[in-house]
Amino acid sequence: MSNHPANTLTLVADIGGTNTRVALADGVTLLPETIRKYSNAKFPGLETVLRQYIEDEGGVDCKGACVAVAGPVRDGVGTMTNLDWTIDRDTLRRATQAEHLSILNDLQAQGHALGFIDEADITTVISAPEASPHAVRLVIGVGTGFNAAPVFQTEKGRFVAPSESGHANLPIRNEQELALCKFVETAHGFPAVEDVLSGRGLERVYLFLGTQAGDPHEKSAAEIMASVENGSDPQATEAARLFVKILGTVVGNLSLVQLPFGGVYLAGGVARHMAPYLERFNFVDAFRDKGRFAGFMKNFSVSVIEDDYAALTGCASHLHNLYT
């Protein structure tokens, strides 16, 4: 017998490149005790992950299911960028038997979470004047990949527009950044934002700096950040500094495109690990370095979302708003 009431709760999932997080929600409220994490490498596809979760939760009968996909979603079909899975409504229906179904891009889910995240889990990096409740907000994900999604609060509810911003060209401001673009291009054929502003991107920046110095060697992103913390490797510190500078430039560019007077919110594991160093490595200067629009950039606040389960909350909020 199930541990949960039938046809009452919704199943929500955040599908990353490495792991899938699954939980149950009651309306817009995530049930923390139901959160489980599964290694994608152990499963052939999402359907088997969700079936395993439902079994682990005692055969729960869900009234709805919403999943967030780390990749583009078109016409209700999600394609993973860093995983060979395709997710559609039939897959969700077979796995969950739920009546109400939805598939979101993972940044869309983060956008739907705004307003439902505990204030203690939001760290302010740049303050700005208070804005209207209907002002546009912008969520930017920096983790395994990079992406952004504007959040619009309309009279008919919240609309979070999808994008694939991480696959736009890297900006170039100086000779070092041009050399970095050429370094990335040689290895990957195209210098995209995600090739630098991601976990793997930080590793590429580190290798690039070593190559320039005539001592090319690799470190994982975790090792680089540990070296920054303990000060044991000047190259790691320089890699983080260059990463933060380019991040500031890109976040500033996206802010000028979307005009998020309601604030910019950085999400994702890399963003959280970089948060303590944004001030030290002059994120603010890079963010506002827009010539005669430098003063205008003071209209935009920037914060970091520290809640690792925000996408799950966003899925719950989205499904609740759709069907109530």
Rank of each mutant, 00 (worst) to 15 (best):
A6F: 01
V193Y: 04
F190M: 08
L259G: 08
L197F: 08
V77L: 04
D14C: 04
A275N: 08
A131G: 09
Q176S: 13
S198Y: 02
G252E: 05
L207T: 12
F261P: 00
T20R: 00
N3H: 02
V196T: 08
A98K: 13
N3M: 14
D233H: 03
G17F: 05
H167F: 14
R204K: 14
R292H: 08
N169M: 11
V49R: 03
V193K: 02
F146I: 11
V196N: 06
P162H: 04
P44F: 11
T34K: 02
D308R: 10
V136L: 10
R36N: 02
A109F: 02
F281H: 14
R51V: 12
Q97C: 15
P150S: 07
E55L: 07
A131S: 14
F116A: 13
M1R: 15
L9T: 09
H100N: 11
S102W: 00
P72W: 01
T144R: 09
A68M: 04
L138P: 06
S255Y: 13
K298A: 07
Y265E: 14
R200A: 12
E175V: 04
T123H: 10
L114C: 02
T8F: 06
V196C: 06
L312E: 01
V244N: 07
L209K: 03
V284E: 15
N82Q: 13
R288W: 03
V69I: 13
E55T: 12
T81D: 12
A240P: 01
L242C: 00
A310T: 02
T154W: 02
P150G: 05
A192Q: 14
T79D: 07
D61W: 06
Q258C: 10
F281L: 11
G45N: 05
G291L: 04
A149G: 12
I15H: 01
T10H: 03
S132N: 15
Y53I: 02
L256M: 15
N7E: 14
N282R: 09
D88P: 13
A187R: 08
G295I: 05
F43I: 11
L170K: 09
L46Q: 00
A98I: 01
A267D: 04
L178C: 06
I54M: 15
A294T: 11
A240R: 01
R89F: 07
H4C: 03
F287N: 06
R89Y: 03
N3K: 09
T79A: 13
S317W: 00
Y38S: 01
D14E: 07
E164G: 13
T124Y: 00
D233N: 14
L50D: 09
T91V: 12
R158D: 02
A41W: 01
L197N: 09
V67I: 02
G252D: 08
R204P: 10
C62M: 03
H188V: 12
M225S: 09
D118C: 00
D56V: 07
P171L: 10
L170F: 12
G78E: 08
V142W: 01
L312Q: 00
R204L: 09
A128D: 11
G16I: 13
T96G: 05
A168W: 04
N282H: 13
A236Q: 08
N105F: 06
R272E: 10
P44H: 05
G76P: 01
I87A: 09
L170T: 07
T34W: 02
F281C: 15
T313C: 11
E177P: 03
Q176E: 15
